[in-house]
Design a protein around this nucleic acid. Sequence first.
DNA 1: GTCTATATACAGATAGAC
DNA 2: GTCTATCTGTATATAGAC
Lengths: 192, 192
Amino acid sequence: MDARTKILETATRLFATHGYDSTSLSHVAKAASVSKALIFWHFETKENLFQAVLSRTIEPYTIDVEDLDGLSEPEQLRRLIDLYYEFVTENVFSVRFFLSLFLREEKRPDPLFGRILDLYRLYQQILGDVIARGQACGTLSREVDPGLHAGLVLSALNGVLVQGFMGEPEPQPPQRLVEQLKTTLVDRLQVQ
Amino acid sequence: MDARTKILETATRLFATHGYDSTSLSHVAKAASVSKALIFWHFETKENLFQAVLSRTIEPYTIDVEDLDGLSEPEQLRRLIDLYYEFVTENVFSVRFFLSLFLREEKRPDPLFGRILDLYRLYQQILGDVIARGQACGTLSREVDPGLHAGLVLSALNGVLVQGFMGEPEPQPPQRLVEQLKTTLVDRLQVQ
DNA sequence: GTCTATATACAGATAGAC
DNA sequence: GTCTATCTGTATATAGAC
């Protein structure tokens, strides 16, 4: 592996676990087995390195909602919930990283920041649309407001995620919570 | 106000917004209008100051579940949910602070850390107990597992909280999400 | 208790050899 | 591209006057 990549990988790991300020370039250099000067040669400044790390990290963040066709609306909802949960479990490390950035004034990577929020809103809208369609088709109860219910589902998912961050062993394992979520927030909404 | 208190208040604010490492004692000294040396005279080290800040911050963290008597179980649940939400809104600042600490290896204030988790688990257990009692009395549906449902309710509450952190304006304001939460996760569980 | 002045360490960043 | 050596600022922490 070339030095540049090595630096990027190491910096990603260290920034994510210790944060921006707590991660010194001397530390990165040592962990990546290169000199400090080489980091500056490749990335100019610490800030630049950080931006490069963020871009690299956010790269796989996309929503592809395939193969929902042919499923009933409740089934689509269950599938979307699973997709969301799969995504965050596959990216726990960086999701945790970004969440910690959101909580601090420290570093708000505004452009990327906005991109994450856009993705998030898009996902919420997709959920809301499916609920609305289900109500129109008569497969889902009309008792709830689609947008609001979508917001609740996502909140619950995020809550499960955060609960996972707060340290094991939890009384309720995340997967069972997600199951409970689908049962209560989707199945109970179905029109029999 | 005496200097010691002034330092504590200032440090609390700065640590909470910028984190441990990003907050220099020079900065604290300037913001509190005292000399750096005075901070060391009162608190010995930066680490000590931080611990003092944490203790002070965690002080009001208690659960007092009063006046639930006389309420039906569903009403008790609604009340408990409101209490939780009131607590976090009154303490947004420090809750956000602690959550950010949980997400970083940076500083894990282990003793206090544990106390927060204990409170959290206690709250979850209270919720679970109320649900179980409701099921025994026949006011709540037996379809759900009490502990699991309690976990889901708390996750959803935490999710609403986090959603609030991620930046306004959100499509769904927190209060409406909490209402939706109570409707869906409590009312729909009632036996008519 | 509160200050100014200072010691010491390490941060981000540059110069220049190879 | 990669290094060693070095500059400059600022961090935590101390000494000692008042």
